[in-house]
Amino acid sequence: MAEKQKLLHRYMKNLSDMEDELKKKELEKKMKELELLQCELARRQERSGTKCAGGKIKELRQKKLQKVLAAYMMTLEGLLCEVARREARLNGDRGRVSESENLPHPEMLEEYTVVFCAVGEDGRELLEAALSARRCAYAPYSKFKVGAAFRAKCGRIYSGCNIENVAFTGGNCAERCALAKGISEGERKYTAGAVVAYHPDQFTTPCGVCRQFILEFLHRDIPIYIAKAPPPEQEHCIPAIQDTDEVLVTSAYRLLPYSLRSFE
């Protein structure tokens, strides 16, 4: 019985080899026929003065192979980086937060402080628009006025102020007020923002709810300019911000690096 099984196994293997050989010969035959057809097409097109069809096919194949190779190289680089990170962690090294693939936005803009006169024209324009909006703030309870401005992708600036309510939860922050104006007019993308308020000892940055609200309408990090408004006794002075006043230039991702992201 064992001998018969061996013979049957050998027979099946030989049959499979013969099939493979036949398929190989058939494929070689078809390839030769295809090459002959391509050469004939090339000759005919050369006679008519047009570009060689074989050359076009070769060029298309090369482009396709280049794309596939580039995709493989990117995958390989990613795997090598991941291996390096894991080895570093196993060796007790601390991983850099910006290199983690689990963060929604590892690339952040630079954060720094600079005097107002050194801020770019776009930033100064946003801060002045925020200051202008702040004058309309409705804050009878806290007396803390805030102004904000955001530049839409189209270039238009939308500004807003904080609006308080006797039922505190019914109030609205300046940042959301400014963005709501633009969103209600169809603007969904923004390139920069600014916030101004008066506090004697520190900059006033957006609250947590506003930070999450801002990030809802961003596809990449944008600069946020933060400046102090003049104290109440100097509110009507011109200029409202002196050239030597300090400005914090931060970014939306730095304000809320671990924001809630889409579940899609």
Rank of each mutant, 00 (worst) to 15 (best):
G186T: 07
S100P: 07
E110R: 07
P239T: 02
E35I: 09
T113W: 07
E77D: 10
E185H: 07
C237D: 13
Y253K: 02
L22D: 04
I163L: 06
K228G: 08
K56H: 09
G55E: 13
A70N: 12
A240Q: 02
K6Y: 12
R47S: 11
N162L: 04
L22E: 09
T250V: 03
A42F: 08
A133C: 06
N14G: 08
C161R: 05
G78N: 05
P257I: 06
V209E: 13
R61Q: 09
Y253M: 09
K153M: 13
L109V: 02
R61M: 06
R124M: 02
D20L: 12
E216H: 11
L90H: 07
A149W: 07
A70C: 12
M1V: 04
F150P: 03
H105F: 10
A118M: 09
C136F: 14
T244R: 10
I238H: 15
L255K: 05
D122I: 14
A133S: 02
D93L: 12
E77F: 08
L22K: 09
R86T: 12
A148H: 09
D201Y: 15
S16D: 03
K32D: 03
P239G: 01
A148L: 06
Y112K: 07
S159V: 05
T50R: 04
Y158S: 03
A118T: 10
K143V: 08
E19F: 04
H9W: 13
A174L: 10
C81R: 14
P206S: 01
G193D: 10
C154K: 14
K24T: 15
E110P: 08
K29I: 05
R176A: 03
Q212F: 00
T205H: 11
E33S: 00
I163W: 01
I238K: 15
R43S: 06
G155K: 11
A194K: 09
E175D: 12
E21T: 11
K143W: 06
S159D: 01
A2D: 07
L256P: 09
C207V: 01
E216N: 11
A139I: 05
R134A: 10
N162F: 01
L260M: 06
